[in-house]
Design a binder for these strands. Structure first.
Lengths: 177, 177
DNA sequence: ATTTAACATGTCAAGAATGACATGTTGTCA
DNA sequence: TGACAACATGTCATTCTTGACATGTTAAAT
């Protein structure tokens, strides 16, 4: 399961509580890579602890439990990460699905959708570029993490932006996608 | 649910059997947008038929059932597609997750992974470019569909390729992601 | 004639994810 | 002092997805 590896990976960069991990999943990792809410994170942390891949290093205020990866967990994470690309890897993206189904719409609706997509991704790329530019080099424990993710996101938005512009051009030509 | 809309969308472009839809999901749509196997497709077609969004237009050899979208189904599809971007849209991508967890590895392993990613995406982009270039304009019923998806895929691979090269550069600098 | 591959559909148990519900704490502002 | 927002964890029923199993047909090659 990928969620377990996502948690292992985040904890390997820096120990954290379930609550902090939940917030992490609201950032880039959840937007581009893997979504998860606290209702799946908490039970999964429990299972990882039961398997000896993570452990609670200390309990803080409000019942907060800080988890850290064990050596065994780090081993498991490394072997998963270094595996060759899995051809049956999970892929699920509702937004991209919408784009792929464009051809099912009338040309006028297609243009409407593509224009929206182009605008949205253009804006998103610009905003993200600004955020990444202002990030202090060597900030928090996940600074490198955020930088990599940010650069990934920028390129992602730009790619979709370029695609939407290209598609608009080609639909305009003959009224067909 | 997105699977129902994916099926509705594919059928809206051209009527098809469950078997044909299953093969469709092994192509670009399954690789970039939404995965599904026949074990989820067949029951879902049944549910869509029960809701009156699709119907069987005729039964062919080997028990094959050809489905088509009803007016109601087309309506439902259109309203789903034209919805504003959903901030809680499902996102799940195992490959991208691996990239995001790079920081959890030692610099040497990071470089290994990034080099692999760069090579793989570079090759994939080139191959896909060749496939798209040789596609006959105005081929089958889903020709436009394949073209859009192909162009999307090319840009996707290129974006990840560029990102991996950028990341390799930055890790090389100071041994940190 | 037989075998094999591709065609074609289906069920069902097990596992994963979501959304609704539930509970209690700590710090801050009025 | 009281209210509120943010902190922090959890359960559970429902829904969705996967993988194993099951069944039968048609066309082509041997």
């Amino acid at each position: 399961m990928s969620l377990s590896h996502a948690l292992l990976g985040l904890l390997a960069v820096a120990p954290a509580s379930g609550y902090e991990l939940t917030k992490e999943f609201e950032q880039e990792i959840g937007r581009y890579a893997w979504q998860a809410g606290h209702t799946s994170i908490y039970p999964e942390l429990g299972k990882l602890a039961a398997r000896g891949l993570v452990h609670v290093t200390h309990e803080g205020a409000r019942g907060a439990k800080t988890y850290d990866v064990t050596d065994e967990g780090r081993e498991e994470l490394r072997s998963w990460l270094l595996q060759p690309p899995n051809p049956t890897a999970t892929v699920r993206n509702e937004q991209v699905l919408r784009m792929f189904l464009l051809s099912a719409l009338e040309p006028a609706d297609q243009r409407l959708m593509l224009t929206r997509i182009a605008e949205h991704t253009g804006r998103a790329a610009t905003e993200l570029r600004a955020v990444v530019a202002t990030e202090t080099p060597g900030g928090g424990p996940r600074a490198g993490f955020g930088r990599l993710a940010g650069e990934f996101g920028i390129r992602q938005y730009e790619a979709v932006h370029e695609w939407a512009l290209w598609a608009l051009d080609h639909i305009a030509e003959d009224g067909q996608a």
